[in-house]
Nucleic acid binder design. Structure first.
Lengths: 128, 128
DNA sequence: ATATTACGACACCATTTGGTTTCGTGTCAA
DNA sequence: TTGACACGAAACCAAATGGTGTCGTAATAT
C-alpha cells in the first residue's frame, strides 16, 4: 500500500522484446509518444499500450507537457529483478560473496513471496 | 550448435510465476515430474509444458531415469539476464562500480543485439 | 476561428498462452 | 503376462496478448 504499488509485474513487463527496446530508448532521455513510436515499426497506439504496461510496472514515468506526454524510464523496479537474480547467483558460481550479498540485502523491499528467504522446501534438506 | 543453444527466451521463460516457482523448487534438487506437480495446483501435463519451456530456455535440464524424467534447474542462462540488468544498474544509483562492471564484462556472451554497447540515442529534445 | 497535432479510449481481430482431458507407449512390479 | 505407473503427445478451449484502425478531445499553430 505504499506509494509505489507496482500493480503490474516487472517480470512480465520486460518479457516483451519491444518493451525492452522501449526501456533502452528511454533510459537516458524523456520522449513524447510520437517520437518514440518513430523508432518502432508498429503503430503509435501499439507503442502507447506498451508504455502503459511499463508504467503500471513502474518502469516508466509519464509527464504531461502541453499536448504531449513524455515518457522516461525509471529503473528502480529492476531492483526486484536484481534481488530475484541474486538468490540464484550463488548457484552458478561458488561465489560465497553472492550469497553474502543476498542475505545482507534480503528485506530491502516487499519481495516476500517472490524469492524464498533461504527457505527449506518441505523436502529433507539434510546438511550438505 | 553449441550444446547451450537457447532457442527459447529467458526473459519470457521467467515471466510466468508458476515457472519461477518451478525454478525455485528445482534449484537444489532433481525431481521427477509427478513429484514436482504435487507441489502445484495444476495438472501434471500443465507442469510438463512449463518444464519444456524452461528446458528450451536452458533453465532446466532433464535426465531420464527408468520410466521417470527428472528435472533440475540450470542457472547459467540467467547470466544473460544479469548482464541485461547490469546495463541499467548504473542508472539507479550513481554507482560507478556498476558501470565499470558492465563495461568490463561486455562481450562475454552473444548479447550483442540485446543490450546496447553504451550507444548514444539521437538527441533532439534540447534543453527543457 | 479554423485547421492541425498529440494522444488516449475504443472496438475489433489473430495468435499465443496456460490450462484441461484423453490417449499411447515405454518401464517396472506381481 | 498382466497390470499399474510415468510421462509426452494431441486435441481442444478460454483468456490474455500484441497488433490494427477510427474517433473524440485538448493543445497548438495559422
Amino acid at each position: 500500500m505504499a506509494s509505489s504499488a507496482p500493480k503490474y509485474d516487472v517480470f512480465q513487463a520486460i518479457a516483451d522484446p519491444t518493451r525492452r527496446r522501449l526501456l533502452q530508448l528511454l533510459v537516458e532521455q524523456e520522449m513524447p509518444v510520437t517520437v518514440i513510436s518513430g523508432h518502432f515499426p508498429i503503430s503509435r497506439t501499439a507503442v502507447s499500450k506498451h508504455l502503459r504496461i511499463l508504467a503500471e510496472a513502474g518502469l516508466v514515468q509519464e509527464r504531461k507537457v502541453g499536448r504531449e506526454t513524455r515518457y522516461r524510464m525509471q529503473p528502480e523496479p529492476l531492483r526486484e529483478l536484481k534481488q530475484w537474480l541474486a538468490y540464484y547467483e550463488q548457484f552458478w558460481d561458488n561465489k560465497l560473496a553472492a550469497l553474502a550479498h543476498y542475505i545482507e540485502h534480503q528485506d530491502s523491499e516487499g519481495m516476500v513471496d517472490r524469492v524464498p528467504k533461504i527457505v527449506k522446501q518441505e523436502r529433507e534438506t539434510k546438511g550438505k
